[in-house]
Amino acid sequence: MKKTMITGSVVCGTMLVMGLTSSLTVSADDTLAGSTTIGAEVTKGDTILDIDKDTNFGQKPLADKVDFGPQDIKYTVTDYTGTKDGYSISAKLTDEDTTRSLKINGKELSQTPIEVITADANKVGENGAKVTAELVYTGAQDTTKFNSTVEWVLTKATTRAIKE
């Protein structure tokens, strides 16, 4: 009986091993590789102008002409539109003061916008720089703290605008 059990176990084991081996056999019709197409699209992002919020020229004593000298104003144009054709920035004053002379990059500001910064090209991402502001009061009659507000407008250049 013991011999029959051993023979039966060997036969069962052999059948089990043969069955497993045959199920792992690869035939020529099986597909063992595949492919996947990955798609993505990068679209235009934003353009942002970030400019110093405050510029303080300090204090000077009252005189016929009070020249506060130059001050730098930092700005950053962050551009994720994918175009690199440059940009321009215009500035204007929001009020009128006949005693004040405020120049940005040598250009006198008024209540009418004037282009003060021009970049012929830019990179994708942050484009930082600075402009020089010069403030002079002529004929001021009061000892007071003067405040002026400058409005800035960023305009992206187009290929057509650059060619003209």
Rank of each mutant, 00 (worst) to 15 (best):
Q111V: 09
S110R: 02
L109R: 03
T81K: 12
D97L: 04
G86R: 03
A119F: 05
T94A: 04
E134G: 08
Q141K: 15
L102C: 01
V136Y: 02
I104E: 14
Y87K: 04
A140T: 02
I104R: 01
S101N: 11
T83V: 08
S88C: 11
D120H: 01
G106N: 12
T83P: 00
I89N: 05
Q111A: 09
A133R: 03
N127D: 12
L102V: 00
Y87S: 08
T143G: 08
T132Y: 05
Q141R: 13
K107I: 15
K123C: 00
A91G: 06
A91H: 04
E108T: 15
S101M: 06
G128P: 03
G139S: 01
D85N: 14
Y87F: 15
A121R: 13
I104H: 03
A119Y: 04
I117C: 07
G128D: 08
T138C: 05
A133H: 10
E126S: 11
K103Q: 08
L93F: 05
G106K: 03
N127Q: 10
T98L: 10
E96W: 05
T83C: 02
G106D: 12
E108C: 00
A121G: 06
K92I: 05
N127T: 06
P113M: 05
K130M: 06
K92W: 00
L93E: 10
E134V: 06
D142C: 09
S88I: 11
G82N: 06
A133M: 14
T98Y: 08
D95M: 00
K92P: 11
S90Y: 03
S110H: 04
D97K: 04
L93N: 07
T99D: 08
V131L: 14
P113I: 02
A129D: 14
Y80I: 05
G86C: 05
T94D: 11
T81M: 01
E126P: 07
K123S: 12
N122T: 12
I117Q: 08
G125T: 09
K123W: 00
L93Q: 11
